[in-house]
Design a protein around this nucleic acid. Structure first.
Lengths: 132, 132, 132, 132
DNA sequence: GTGGTCTAGACCACG
DNA sequence: GTGGTCTAGACCACC
């Protein structure tokens, strides 16, 4: 599992872990039934405290994205497509909402705003291509 | 000066104050040379701690958007059109960047992402009442 | 706020805290907008580590039952009646389901099962009356 | 012996094994004197760790429901009708107690609680296939 | 003052 | 081996 932690971003580590795992599930890079790296292993790999990883896993479990099998490990839950779409929309909405709000406040026209997003999108999709 | 604080947004209050003042400067609703409300007055009016307002003012001063005239008060700084555009772009870029990143991570197509932003934009441009 | 912790029940303390707060919200003993006891205060009162209380609060916040106001404290969220009812049903269903399952497995008739529940219900509702 | 394990239920596997065997004894599907499957055979058949089965057997033996005959195997113990009824009652009481407590805490009326249990009972008595 | 995050280390239940 | 819980104590941001 590819995870990248930025210790200087100001975003809590456990949140970064949550976001990245959630996004990998949403984009089917992690599929239902797959086993997650163990808490200890991931913690060692990321060089953080096991409790930090455990916290991320616990919240994702509360969200219904992960399932525990006692004494064995944590697995990606099989979720209904419905729910998947809803989570996706919520995530997208929150960020788009914020972008739109800022644009309007700055007096940026709709056209400009869209152009800006387009530019940023291209940057990310190409950088992702490189990673893959 | 019209300012609205949302105690439930999770965004630090001093940030909300900063964002709204900055956006009013950028959109010329506050013009160079105008005097700002005193820390105590604004704090009383918004029903927040004076330190919170003071902090917002201090950061805006550091950004060069406000000018402190000792013993008199704070005023909107004259900024070069160049700088104005740069600030605007920075603000816009940060939110758009985040939006694009999320969209890409979620596997949302460029087209979808743009449509989503468009929808949110319309919401905000029509109801400008709710500002953060 | 009345909270009782049983250190010997085997149920994690943070779960006990969650359950009791959730139930108090559901039964309107804690009403929307009310401020919760601070993490440190509650921890001191229950004689547990502050992180344990914090954990309970964090999960309830993730459930949407609590709201944070930065630097001020945690408050009961205003939730839609809809959502309240759904949560109530989920809680009730899980426990009734288990009871029914056990009864069926033990070969207990429906009539007997209902009579048994009735008896237990009376015990609890009267003991609650005494507490109030 | 028919046993079904649900790896997703969150209930410890050894508990599931215990519950099902106990319920089969209580409902005379397993009768006194019958020999139990060996730990290794049952473990292989359920595809679980032998220690898990062994643990379940050990607890049932401690409860007096099983008898160990050295070098031969485990057998269903002869239990007095009295004791059988007591065990049955204990099991039933624990779940009903919990159900009643939850209902009272949630402010659910006795009538509602009974109706809810009735509904769940019917679900289980019709589809006995899924046992825990 | 408030809550949030992280660490280090102990102990437990489960398989 | 797995994850879960709890503690004690440090540090941070916000008000």
């Amino acid at each position: 599992m590819l995870l990248e932690i930025d210790h200087h971003s100001g975003i809590p580590i456990y949140r970064q872990v949550m976001n990245q795992i959630r996004s990998q599930i949403m984009t089917s890079r992690l599929t239902a039934g797959a086993r997650l790296e163990s808490v200890r292993d991931l913690a060692a790999r990321l060089n953080v405290n096991p409790m930090t990883v455990s916290k991320a896993y616990a919240f994702l479990e509360a969200e219904g994205l992960l399932e525990r099998r006692r004494g064995i490990g944590l697995f990606i839950a099989r979720i209904k497509p419905d729910k998947g779409r809803r989570i996706k929309n919520e995530l997208l909405e929150s960020v788009m909402d914020r972008a739109a709000m800022t644009a309007v406040q700055l007096g940026v026209s709709e056209k400009e705003a869209l152009a800006f997003l387009k530019k940023c999108y291209k940057t990310y999709s190409s950088s992702k291509a490189r990673q893959t």
